[in-house]
């Protein structure tokens, strides 16, 4: 069974450690034995999925968030061409984050332009207000990434640490 479900079992290992893996593996075998005489279909990973419904990858929402941050910066750069040199590298960083998050989560990147974070919606003509709104969005993004970093399995934590640090440095760059 383990060999048929490498992804599911691997995730259990990362999140909960080896002892949890063995406990769950035992439970899985127990469930298999319990169901042995029943008519339930014992097909592959469905057995493991049955006691834990599949949940979306916890990092998937961060892809949309990164693209929204990028869209907000690009819109601000259009509204304020004198800021574009400063804002474009930040937008590119968010897009690189989205691509990397899509890669590690196995999620396809959405096609088409992302909706702006709304950072430039209020008063696009006011440069200071635009920068304030962009900083607000970066701060929220930094906090999302920081929380995800604290909870992440070992193979994702370095990426999330870099994304947290990047968003924090964007805050500084927008001063």
């Amino acid at each position: 069974m383990v060999l048929t479900c490498p992804v599911v079992m691997g995730r259990t290992t990362r999140r909960n450690g080896a002892s949890e893996l063995s406990r769950r593996a035992v439970l899985g075998v127990g469930a298999l034995l319990a169901l042995g005489g029943a008519a339930a279909p014992l097909t592959g990973c469905g057995l493991f999925d049955s006691d834990e419904p599949p949940t979306p990858d916890p990092l998937a929402p961060m892809i949309d968030e990164a693209l929204r941050l990028a869209a907000g910066l690009r819109a601000a750069g259009v509204a304020h061409p004198d800021l574009a040199d400063r804002l474009t590298p930040l937008a590119e960083a968010h897009e690189a984050h989205a691509a990397e998050l899509a890669r590690v989560t196995g999620t396809p990147l959405p096609s088409g332009p992302a909706a702006s974070s709304g950072a430039t919606g209020a008063s696009p003509t006011d440069r200071a207000a635009t920068l304030t709104a962009l900083r607000h969005a970066e701060r929220a993004g930094r906090d999302t990434a920081s929380k995800a970093c604290a909870e992440a399995p070992a193979d994702r934590v370095a990426l999330l640490g870099s994304i947290t640090a990047a968003r924090a440095s964007h805050l500084e760059a927008l001063k």
Binding site: D85, P89, H97, L159, A165, A166, S169, E172
Partner: peptide, 11 residues
């Protein structure tokens, strides 16, 4: 120095 930031600090 421009840009002021790198995409993946520490990577």
């Amino acid at each position: 120095i421009s840009p002021l930031t790198v995409a993946f600090p520490g990577r």
